[in-house]
Amino acid sequence: MATGAEVDLRTRLQNWLPKLVLSPSLAMIFVFVYGFILFTVYVSFTDSRILPFVDKNGQTTYELIGFSNYEKLFSLSHWDISVMNMAIYAGLYIVICTFIGLLLAILLDQKIRGEGFIRPIFLYPMALSFIVTGTAWKWMLDPAIGFENIVQGWGWTTFTFDWIKNRDFAIYTVILAAVWQSSGFTMAMFLAGLRGIDTEILKAAQMDGASNWNLYRRIIIPQLRPAFLSAFVILAHLAIKTFDLVIAMTGGGPGRATELPATFMYSYTFSRNQMGIGAASAVIMLMTIAAIMIPYLYSELRERKS
C-alpha cells in the first residue's frame, strides 16, 4: 500500500464524510429501533407493571421472571380472542382487497373513458387517517342513525343491520372499513403491473386465438406475480399494525369482539398496568411481521444487487 502519508487532509476528510453523514441516522435507527426492540424483549422477561423501571431510591421496580409472561399471555382468553380476530381480519382483508383491487385494475385497464377521473376516487381513502375512516363508518353503521335507521325510515320497519353492536359480526364491520380504505391502493399496484406487461405478448396471444377470459387467466394474471407478492406483503403488514381503526370504530368492543393484538398490547401496557405481558405481546407481533418482511426484503435487495 502506497497510500497513507501522502493522502492530504481534505481528501481524507472527503473519504470519511459519507460515513459521517450516514451515521446520525444509523445511530438513531440502531438505538430507537434495534436497541428498543432488545429493550422490549428484556421487559417481556420481567414482571414490570408500569414505568418507571427505577424508583426514587434507585431500586429497580421489577424482577426477571423468564418466560412467565409468555405463558400467561397464551393462557389469556383476551389474547386468544385478539389472535383469532387477527386471523379472520387479516385473512379476509387481504383476500378481499386483492380481489377488488385486481378486479378494478382489470376493468380500468379496458381503455376506460374518464379513467383519470375514476382512479382518484378509488384512491383517495388511502390519504385519510384511520380515525377519520373509523368515525365515518362508525356512525354510518350505527343502528340508531345509520343504515338501519335509514332503511327503516323508508318503511321496512323490521330491517336490522346492527353488526357493529353485535359480538359475532362486529369484526366484519372493521374489515369493511379497512377494505374501503386500502382496496383502491391495491388496485393501483395491480394497474401498474398490468401497464408493465409487454403489449406484444398480448397481441401474440390474441393472434393465437385466446379469448379475453383465457388471455387474463393464462397470460396476464400469471405475469402479475410480483404485484401479488407486493400487495400481499403490504396488506399483511398493514393488517398486523391495525390499531387506530378499531379504536375509532369499536374501541375493541362490543365486549372483546374486535380486540386485535395491537389493541391488546396497548391496553395491557398503558391501561391495565401489565407491561411485561404487553411487551410479550409486542414481541409476538414483531416476530409475525418479521417472518413475512425479512424474506421479502432479502429477496428484493438481493435481486437489486445483481
Binding site: M1, A2, T3, G4, E6, V7, D8, R10, T11, Q14
Partner: peptide
C-alpha cells in the same frame, strides 16, 4: 478507484490517494 498496490505517477508525482 483506489490502487491496491503499485503506483501511478503523473509528472513524477505519486498520485496514489490524491483526490
Amino acid at each position: 478507484e483506489d490502487i491496491t498496490s503499485g503506483e501511478i505517477r503523473i509528472k513524477d508525482q505519486v498520485m496514489n490517494g490524491v483526490h
